[in-house]
């Protein structure tokens, strides 16, 4: 039985949150540079230039890339042969998240759904984190973290199509979601698509798809071709950086699939803004 100390997890999560909120990941920075080079609209090109400069300032001055430092979202793979010494894994993640957000001077953005009162004193600073656990064989511990802002969550959508809708129906749904979103989610976007499973499984898959490295290829050749088709179609919408018109609307489309019920074709689209703050820790 492998053992990991509670406080080591807390420290790693804290550090990873502060780093991630102030350092645009290399893949996103590279995509931003590529979009800046390719963009035909002078207005959108200036937006992309500002975003590259913003990333440089944030990194050099340890400042949050965006004032929306998001809700803390985690995907956790826990080995069955792993023991956490000194506390629970869930508590360690929440404690690390609270420390990271507070000590990084990030924003506390969790509130009560109805009164809209900030929950920083009642539950904790930007708590609770949203955590998806997956129990796996062995003794590994892998934690993926993303800061998920409100603007891009607000335009994300899920549906359950009739099986007859097929690939064309999925493509049409994704186009509709991105088209309707327009400027609101801060394009250029990463578009996460979850196909299959149940209603909630598709949604969780669409979120997890956003964690894949930008520019990486889907291992499934059918999904890979769908990703390329969708990227081309979405860039034709003309939305551009911050929606002011342009040729660079998406950095990439990432699809994850699951087996379906014979009666259903669930599809979920989770939209990620250009500030694609995601990171992975392996213990």
């Amino acid at each position: 039985m492998r053992e990991i100390k509670y406080e080591d997890i807390v420290k790693s999560i804290r550090d990873c949150i502060i780093f991630s909120g102030t350092n645009l990941p290399k893949d996103a920075y590279a995509k931003m540079q590529e979009a800046h080079e390719k963009e035909k609209s002078p207005v959108a090109k200036e937006v992309l230039r500002q975003l590259l400069e913003n990333a440089d300032i944030a990194k050099n001055e340890d400042k949050p890339l965006c004032q929306d430092t998001g809700l803390a979202v985690f995907f956790v793979k826990v080995g069955e042969d792993l023991k956490i010494l000194g506390g629970s894994l869930k508590q360690a993640i929440n404690e690390g998240a609270e420390l990271g957000y507070r000590e990084g001077y990030f924003r506390a953005s969790t509130c009560h759904w109805d009164t809209r009162a900030n929950l920083k004193d009642e539950i904790g600073y930007n708590l609770p984190a949203v955590i998806h656990f997956d129990l796996v064989a062995g003794d590994e511990l892998e934690i993926e973290y993303a800061a998920k802002g409100g603007g891009s969550e607000n335009v994300s959508r899920a549906t359950v199509l009739a099986p007859a809708a097929g690939r064309a129906g999925i493509v049409a749904f994704v186009k509709e979601v991105v088209s309707n979103a327009g400027p609101n989610p801060c394009p250029p976007l990463t578009v996460g698509v979850g196909i299959g499973g149940t209603f909630e499984k598709a949604a969780i898959s669409s979120k997890h798809a956003l964690f894949r490295e930008l520019g990486s290829k889907n291992e499934d050749p059918v999904l890979d071709s769908m990703e390329q088709e969708l990227k081309e179609e979405l860039n034709k919408l003309g939305i551009g950086a911050m929606g002011m018109g342009g040729t660079q609307t998406v950095f990439g489309v990432h699809i994850e699939k699951n087996p379906c019920h014979i009666a259903s074709l669930p599809v979920s689209v989770n939209v990620q803004c250009h500030s694609s703050r995601h990171t992975k820790i392996k213990f």
Binding site: E53, N54, K63, P64, L65, C273, S275
Partner: peptide, 12 residues
């Protein structure tokens, strides 16, 4: 419109 996600740049 100001550039969304350029919070560090705009704060300057």
């Amino acid at each position: 419109g100001a550039t969304g996600g350029a919070g560090a740049l705009l704060a300057r």
